[in-house]
Simulated scan of single mutants.
Amino acid sequence: MASRSSFLTFLVCTALLAVLFGAADAQGLRVGFYKKTCPKAETIVRETVAGFVAKDATVAAPLLRLHFHDCFVRGCDGSVLLNSTKGRLAEKDAMPNLSLDGFYVIDAAKAAVEVACPGVVSCADIVALAARDGVELVIDQSITREDRAAGRARVVGSEAVANLPSSFGEITELKANFARKGLSAKDLAVLSGSHTIGNAHCNAFSKRLYNFTGKGDRDPSLAPAYARKLRSQCPRGDETSIVEMDPGRAVSFDTSYYVRVVNGKGLFHSDAALLRDKVTRDLVYQYTGSASKFFRDFGVAMGKMGSIGVLTGARGEIRRHCALVNA
């Protein structure tokens, strides 16, 4: 675990990033956006998240994943929260998002904020704040990202399939996917570190165990002993069981994920792929020995991701209920 001072460093870096974006757009990203319009907004979200984390610490990972999945499809606009309508598949019901969780936390936070400040705080911001607070609560430190994103009316589910990185992705594919969002290879390596918390369904990686190239083989980048353990947890054809992405540390936000990647124990093929590029490989090795560097870089990368496609002014709406567009 890094010292508190190292966390303060990355807090400053991320806050500065938000200020820079705010300078570019007076109505866009800036620190303290709700200071006057809803001064208790962050406190309300944090207390709501803390209540759920106190009951089940594993909820922190789904909240972080919600923010990631939201930002990678049309930007950070809260669209991942919308329900499907007749004849139109929503983002949350697309195949890559069927395992998303934590919606109930966002709904509870939104309801509480609406009582204090009706029609002021966007669902997108609540997703971002909840992700920050969830991680903070499992490491007793924080990631700062304050902005305003009003949320588009609807996202077609097929866009989630097209935009979200695949857990089976090769390094060139993953880098290209991140580049399309204005994120670098370094951001890819850093944000992959979020796999240090949370769980995954067997179908997200079982191909590595039973049919990697279509010939009934195992992914050679997967450590044999770890593959045998995964097979015992996920029998062939099992699509419902879940396993910890970082066994024994699923609620500890730290750098043990990178140690596992180095040792061939990253759960996804996309984890192993990080070792096939000089930039990402070097960072993986650096983070195994420097938690402070990882936490600092993670804060900055989260700030960059949180700025993707942010909507301001009249380009969206502040939804009264995050799952529904306003009537």
Rank of each mutant, 00 (worst) to 15 (best):
T213D: 11
D217A: 13
D219M: 12
A272L: 14
R260A: 02
N177I: 13
A272T: 12
S241R: 12
K229T: 07
K181T: 06
R208G: 04
D271E: 15
S221W: 00
N203D: 13
L222F: 13
P235T: 06
S241N: 11
D219W: 07
Y257H: 13
N177E: 14
G182C: 07
S192C: 12
F178E: 03
G216R: 09
L267D: 02
D238F: 00
P247T: 11
V261I: 15
T240R: 04
N211Y: 08
V190I: 15
A250D: 15
T240Y: 07
S252L: 14
D254P: 03
P220R: 15
T196F: 02
S221H: 09
L230T: 03
S270K: 05
N211R: 07
A200L: 07
K229D: 05
Y210P: 03
R228I: 14
R236L: 13
D271M: 13
D238P: 05
G193W: 01
V261M: 06
F253R: 00
G198R: 04
S184T: 15
F253E: 01
Q233G: 08
I197F: 09
C234S: 10
D271R: 09
G214K: 06
K215P: 10
A185I: 04
G198I: 03
E239K: 09
N203K: 02
Y258V: 04
P235W: 05
A189M: 09
K181H: 13
Y226T: 00
R180D: 12
L209C: 10
F212S: 10
F178C: 02
G266V: 08
S192K: 10
L222S: 00
T255D: 06
F253M: 05
F212L: 08
L191R: 02
C202F: 08
R208Y: 02
K186N: 08
T196E: 07
F212V: 11
D187F: 00
K207V: 08
G248M: 12
G264C: 07
Y226R: 12
V261H: 05
R208L: 05
P235G: 06
R231H: 05
R231C: 09
G237Y: 05
T255C: 06
